[in-house]
């Protein structure tokens, strides 16, 4: 089982504030998750490789460039102009903003 300190550390890294009770709960929950992964880790995957070609065809990435072909799964270096509408929606989605900046709690 995970120690209290380990859970606190993970919570810190995830910027989560946990109460004593939640820490105890997480000790059990997280441990169960990790146990499950340890079970998965026992499977011998040394002979299995993620095939780039399959990956590429699944996610449908184009990879035929006129000038520089031969690197599967990458895109040609072309800048595409973002529509202002999309950019504005992204800015609208900021939890807090000042002009077009995202505003956050003071850091460092």
């Amino acid at each position: 089982m995970l120690s209290k300190e380990e859970v606190k550390h993970i919570a810190d890294l995830s910027r989560l504030k946990l109460s004593e009770k939640e820490i105890e709960l997480m000790q059990k929950d997280l441990s169960a998750v990790l146990d499950y992964f340890n079970l998965l880790k026992k499977i011998d995957t040394s002979k299995i490789k993620l095939e780039t070609e399959k990956f590429v065809s699944t996610v449908n990435i184009s990879h035929n460039f006129e000038d520089f072909d031969g690197l599967l799964g990458t895109r040609k270096d072309e800048a595409i102009h973002q529509s202002r509408e999309v950019v504005e929606k992204l800015i609208q989605a900021f939890p807090d903003k000042k002009d077009d900046y995202i505003k956050v709690k003071a850091i460092l």
Binding site: T74, R75, K76, D77, V86, V87, L90, D100
Partner: peptide, 23 residues
């Protein structure tokens, strides 16, 4: 201009997929 060259991918919106720049 702040936050001018941004899109759902580099702003980490759910459901987006990064594709590496060959250059």
């Amino acid at each position: 201009r702040p936050n001018y060259n941004i899109c759902p991918i580099c702003m980490a919106h759910p459901g987006t997929l990064p594709v590496a720049n060959e250059a």
